[in-house]
Write a protein that binds this DNA or RNA. Structure first.
Lengths: 115, 115
DNA sequence: CTAAGACCTCACGCCGGCGTCAGAGGCAAA
DNA sequence: TTTGCCTCTGACGCCGGCGTGAGGTCTTAG
């Protein structure tokens, strides 16, 4: 698929997709004339990238993870990266859960009134 | 407590605490000479603020929520704010959960090797 | 063949959440 | 009172994640 289609399929902008490639998060093929061609998997990849970014991951960390996933062998360094980021996401998850619960109680308090 | 103590208690920097006040997220008392004095509750408030910021909330949205919490009456506008932010946090929570699970499987795959 | 639209590569701009000075003033101990 | 640390108020700087042109090329419908 072409970049505009991927953008529409994922909700990302064309600019963002090019930025992701620039950061090494995406590696589309190119046509002879230089136009980007994405495989269907790219949709999931982009959604994944955006969810990581939304959870406070930096693009550099995501690039590390990507390299880790595509390597045949996992180096100790990569292992460390994964573990560190795992700790991050655990914290983010707990924070999100707490925040969600807190909101739920606020909603229970005010939510049944008129709009 | 003074700002340095609050900083140490919360893990935020002094600069960040002043920034939060600037944004209307915190309202410490002042001594006659102008030094900030925080009540013990401020610790929880700061942790709460940081968790919201970490979940992608803007400081303006948090200020709105704060105003909402301290008002005697909840206006429809505030109600809308809370609902919108609730949707945000729901999404963030689901994303975090998915990310966490994905990491868990990665760790299961590589995590039992040597460091 | 042509015209519209999607795409390309620079490259500068923006904004939020602080970091980081500079310079001046509190405050507790000796 | 002096020493040393904490705090104060500006005010500029930085960096990531894009937005937004400018100026040119590709593709495809008619």
């Amino acid at each position: 698929m072409r970049i505009g289609e991927l953008a529409e399929a994922t909700g990302a902008t064309v600019r963002a997709l090019r930025y992701y490639e620039e950061q090494g998060l995406l590696r589309p093929e190119r046509t002879a004339s230089g136009q980007r061609i994405y495989t269907p998997d790219a949709v999931d990849q982009v959604l994944w990238i955006r969810s990581l970014l939304g959870n406070g991951f930096s693009s550099k960390a995501i690039a590390q993870l990507r390299r880790c996933a595509s390597a045949d062998e996992v180096t100790p360094e990569q292992r460390a990266v994964v573990r560190a980021e795992h700790a991050r996401i655990e914290a983010a998850y707990r924070a999100a859960a707490a925040t969600k619960d807190r909101f739920a109680s606020v909603l229970a308090f005010i939510g049944d009134g008129p709009d």
